[in-house]
Simulated assay, not measured.
Amino acid sequence: MKVGIMSDTHDNLPAIRLAVDFFNKEKVDLVIHAGDYVAPFVARELSKLNAPLRGVFGNNDGEREGLKEKLGIKDEILTLNLDDLKVIVLHGTDERIVEALAKSQLYDIVIRGHTHRHRIQEVGRTIVVNPGEVCGYLTGVKSVAILNTKEREVRIINLETEEILGIMSL
């Protein structure tokens, strides 16, 4: 299974379009959003995904009822089983919670956002994935991640250049 991972889109419609086009070109089976969509009008661009979208709220998602209605987002934490990989998704506003989830070793993968900085980190047998920011507002880099559950690999990609920014085997 190929899973697209994104976070921190912050209403940047051209950047969301880039991410959607990239995920569609990569033929992902699922897209996970780790929060901070911001407003429900982003649903128009996200609806162009050829794969289902699952996600969580972030700290800047003020219009939660609209996001719930348009995108089906309803939680701050989401757990998934992806080809026998236990995955937890959260925005990651509180670093202590992210750290506790990683150290608990209950999950194979912890997907988080919030910092706007892309990173893949190994904590024991758990991999913490932050795809960075789609919006590009803080770092200047618009990035996403691809998790390939069959190949047991995660890659972080710069959306504008399609350069691989980070890679790790699970």
Score class of each variant (00 low, 15 high):
3 V>H: 12
6 M>K: 01
6 M>W: 00
7 S>E: 09
8 D>M: 03
8 D>K: 11
8 D>C: 12
8 D>R: 06
8 D>F: 04
10 H>C: 03
11 D>T: 07
12 N>K: 15
13 L>M: 12
13 L>F: 08
13 L>H: 05
14 P>E: 09
15 A>C: 10
16 I>S: 04
17 R>K: 14
20 V>I: 08
20 V>H: 06
22 F>D: 01
26 E>H: 11
28 V>R: 02
30 L>M: 07
30 L>D: 04
31 V>Y: 14
32 I>E: 09
32 I>P: 04
33 H>N: 15
34 A>W: 04
36 D>T: 02
37 Y>L: 10
37 Y>D: 03
39 A>K: 13
39 A>R: 15
41 F>Y: 15
42 V>N: 06
42 V>D: 01
42 V>S: 04
43 A>Q: 11
44 R>N: 13
45 E>Q: 00
45 E>V: 01
45 E>K: 00
46 L>Y: 01
47 S>A: 15
49 L>Q: 14
50 N>C: 07
51 A>N: 06
52 P>S: 12
53 L>D: 05
55 G>K: 08
56 V>K: 02
56 V>C: 08
60 N>Y: 14
62 G>D: 06
66 G>Y: 00
66 G>E: 00
69 E>D: 14
72 G>Q: 10
76 E>Q: 09
77 I>F: 09
78 L>Q: 04
80 L>H: 03
80 L>E: 08
81 N>P: 00
81 N>R: 08
84 D>C: 09
85 L>G: 04
87 V>N: 01
87 V>S: 01
88 I>W: 00
89 V>D: 00
89 V>M: 03
91 H>I: 07
92 G>Y: 07
92 G>T: 08
92 G>F: 04
92 G>V: 05
93 T>M: 13
94 D>E: 14
98 V>I: 14
98 V>L: 10
103 K>D: 05
104 S>D: 12
108 D>T: 13
108 D>Y: 13
110 V>M: 05
110 V>Y: 11
112 R>E: 15
113 G>F: 01
115 T>G: 13
116 H>Q: 10
116 H>C: 11
117 R>D: 08
118 H>S: 13
119 R>Y: 01
120 I>M: 11
122 E>A: 07
123 V>E: 10
124 G>D: 08
126 T>C: 11
128 V>S: 06
131 P>F: 09
131 P>Y: 07
132 G>W: 06
132 G>S: 10
134 V>I: 10
136 G>T: 05
136 G>Y: 04
137 Y>P: 02
140 G>H: 05
141 V>L: 15
145 A>L: 14
146 I>F: 14
148 N>G: 05
149 T>L: 01
149 T>A: 04
149 T>C: 00
154 V>Y: 02
154 V>G: 08
157 I>S: 03
158 N>L: 06
160 E>D: 12
161 T>Y: 09
162 E>W: 14
165 L>I: 10
165 L>S: 13
165 L>G: 03
165 L>F: 02
167 I>E: 14
169 S>V: 03
169 S>G: 07
170 L>G: 09
